[in-house]
Amino acid sequence: MNAVTALEWFTQVLEVITALAAAPLLFGWVNQCRAWLQNRSAPSLLQPYRSIRKLFHKDAVLATNASPLFRIAPYVIFGTMAAAAAVIPSVGTHLPFTPVADGIALVGLLATARVFQALAAMDVGTAFGTLGARREMMIGFLAEPALLMVIFVASLLSASTALPAIAEQLASQAVGIYPSLAFTAVAFTMVLLAENARIPVDNPATHLELTMIHEAMLLEYSARHLALLEWAATLKLFNYTCIGFALFAPWGTAHSETPQALLAALPIFGLKLLVAGGGIALVETLSAKLRVFRAPEFLATAFLFAVLGLLVRLLLGA
């Protein structure tokens, strides 16, 4: 193994570790921004870490009729989210894992996590779990095509479906402002909000039975299982944000795998996360929670925006 590949593997490991470590921080930052924008006193930036740590130390309580699937699901969901972080370029784009899975496989991976989440939610058989699973699948089957369409537009522009290659291609072009990417950016933001149980579709802060989706699926979980699921939820938000960076803001990632380039890329990446987290909080504060049956309209709009981007690209070549 020569030095270049060693550095590439180092970048790969660094990316996953950054994702695992920084995901709760991003979550905390979004919560903090939300609190500020809503004139509340904000919780500490480290609050997600504290709650995850507390949950890990607790004794796990399982329902008497919980099957092994219920116990293994948090590990599978966490594992898939961590593996997804390996495919998405965040700090550098030269990742040795890239040829293994492209953007379409990534969408499949996220769908796998969703299926396990829904299965686990139905496992114990309480009313809320199945309710959450049903709603999650409803959101999922509408959000997935929109996300795929977004990736297709980006892959049309850059002649590749692998996210690091897309990021590299889009970043290397001279001032490239594509109208098609602007449309898909709107679509992607909407998918991000829906997939991560953010406000127009779901509210991460409530346990109000009429509206909740994601939280309804976690109700039977406790202790380390719940900790893993919460951590996985923060990882999911982090992953989606990084997909957004790769597609719409690929500037500043390290293209040459030298330690200097990586060091230079880290603060830019942090800055992008700060801005994106603030943006998510702003959108959440400015919009109202939709009724559950309004969510399909929201996601259909996202899909339409993505298709519009595709048409702009194919018909106008812009």
């Binding site: 004794d59 008497t64 898939t80």
Partner: peptide, 29 residues
Amino acid sequence: TVAAVVVLTVLAVRAVWHRRVRRSAAWDC
């Protein structure tokens, strides 16, 4: 790879934290 990451997660959680599990009735609201 995905399977390996999942197994690694299980092992890491078991190694770092405890494995205590208690069974109880499901929450019926």
